[in-house]
């Protein structure tokens, strides 16, 4: 089923820098792994709808903690900050 996988495009989608050397290796490894997992295509039929044992259950949005008590702790982990903000490179830029 898989003939060629564009690993460079995947790496770009995954925001992952990959060296040329690794790229060459992955271009062999990933199709081999996909070839292995593709065996599930042979399975036909489907299980009836099963009610899952666990579902995502969200907490009630109540009793918030006092604003600001975790700010310093969390911000101190940030690689770069400006005051009480996490500093990042410009996200939007004008086209050159």
């Amino acid at each position: 089923m898989t003939q060629k996988v564009d690993v460079r495009a995947l790496a770009n989608l995954a925001r992952l820098e990959v060296s040329d050397e690794e790229l060459a290796r992955l271009e062999k490894e990933i199709p081999a792994i996909l070839g292995f997992v593709e065996t599930i295509q042979a399975v036909s039929g489907a299980a009836g709808e099963v009610a899952p044992e666990v579902r995502n259950v969200m907490r009630e949005d109540v009793n918030p903690h006092e604003s600001g008590i975790h700010t310093e702790e969390l911000l101190s982990a940030a690689p770069s900050r400006k005051g009480d903000l996490v500093a990042v490179k410009q996200v939007l830029s004008r086209k050159k």
């Binding site: 996988v5 690993v7 995947l10 790496a11 989608l13 995954a14 992952l16 990959v18 690794e22 992955l26 490894e29 990933i30 792994i33 996909l34 997992v37």
Partner: peptide
């Protein structure tokens, strides 16, 4: 980790 991220990106693409 890189290998699995890429495979995961592929199977979800």
């Amino acid at each position: 980790v890189r290998r699995r991220i890429l495979i995961g990106t592929f199977v979800l693409s």
